[in-house]
Design a protein around this nucleic acid. Sequence first.
RNA 1: GGUCCCAUCGUCUAGUUAGGUCUAGGACACCAGGUUUUCAUCCUGGCAACCCGGGUUCGAAUCCCGGUGGGAUCACCA
Length: 491
Amino acid sequence: MARLEGLTTTPAVTRVAPSPTGDPHVGTGYVALFNWALAKRTGGRFILRIEDTDQARSRSEHEGAIIDALAWLGIEADESPRAGGDYGPYRQSERGEIYADHCGQLIEKGAAYRCFCTSERLAEMRAAQKAAKGQMGYDGLCRSLTAHESASRAADGEPHVVRLAVDKSGVTRFTDLLRGEIEIQNREVDDQVLLKTDGMPTYHLANVVDDHLMGVTIIMRAEEWIPSVPKHVMLYDAFEWSAPTYAHVPLLRNADKSKISKRKNPTSILWYRDEGFLPEAMLNFLALQGWRPNEDRELFTTEEFVAEFDPHAISTGGPVFDMTKLEWVNGEKIRELSPDELASRLTNGGFAEGWTRDEVLGVLPLFQERLKRLSEFLDQSRYIRETVEPDMEGLRKKTKKVEPALLATGLREAAEVLTSMAGKSHDEQEAALRAIADRHEFKVGALFMGLRIAITGAMASPPLLPSVDAVGAEESARRTLALVEQLAATA
RNA sequence: GGUCCCAUCGUCUAGUUAGGUCUAGGACACCAGGUUUUCAUCCUGGCAACCCGGGUUCGAAUCCCGGUGGGAUCACCA
């Protein structure tokens, strides 16, 4: 496609510009990671700008949550409301004068005009356009106002917005790094509102002014913005600025291919954190949605990603968010961690309530290869701390061929072995247990399954003898004898 | 509906820029087998795709055109 030489070698100034209107969105993380990686790789700057011009929906607590969530992923902005920087403020609500001033320039140049139309008139106009199945968009009524009338009505305090004066003839072309040349007929472009009645800019104005003033060199954002690029290009032209490079990345999708949404997928980064997904797994997985290293390899570290990332290589198809693959990546990353590190993550992340770090470390060998999410730890390890209701039905199924009385006898003897041989090697213990089954002439598997269900409660559980160690020999024997009684009671 | 974007296994993708090396490669998932007292891990193998139709060409997954399908967008939200 539109290959840009030097893109990965000249310092890039990139940005992510979330709106603080909800929980930190996984899509924000997705776009942020590409922008961050390019800036980092090229030794440029990565800016986190808060687009809070929608005063009704923006909430300040979301701003902090977004910055924190990105930091959790390992994405730290060089410039942001929190980090500061030379091109601030980084909160659009604090840049009102800048927009007003630039908007004034546009009006003077004739590239924008005041519009006094009421929302009622706009609603009627749209209804009529819809009924007539005609072209949608502002009809340009206020565009014919004389400069004098426009200025004096504004001076009288009449509420108004400022609109972009689009030349409806011709076509606007721009190049997208991933998609090549895109052209849109100007008649399709609406006289977009640039400055709202409340004096705040809309996205279109704010975004262009800020990106220019902050020195942004490449805009990587979601593809949903493609249709509005002509408006931005017109603004750059009107200001006589040169436009940055555009790269519209695909949208993350639900299983039905629609744009990823709360209803069909967890979309909050906080949810993934609280479920026990590792930030490095999350980042690896997200990067995989459209990008991959040169070799056939899907697991990589954040450092490797940064070192190799090239925006040209992002694919254009919208990737379906696959939780199963995320879990696989997470499991792999969990297994890569040192037990020490994993124990820390478990305790610090609140996934081992009631356990000390050392206690966790002690039993970790039983669970490290079994965890897909850190949140599973408590459930998987429950049997170690408390008696778990044994799966009697499972036991019956697995020991069908053994005389119940015989099995009971075997289990009683096994309980005896567990206590008498406590502290001996697992090999010796196992040999003794096998001898029991052999003596009574039934399958060793049945005996082990009985013990397993007695001690861990379930048919599928961590290795038996290490579990006995973790539970304690006395307690294990007690649970075994309890099972024997339960067996007799139900027989 | 208008406009724009996209289109390789169920899913993520390699291959498309410079057409042959592609009887289309890898990974997840799934299935089968091995290791294991269960599960998990690990190992081996298997299933499985170039949306359709034309054209260009000796040759097309790759280039062109037309369909079809999916998506996004048409706000004083971003």
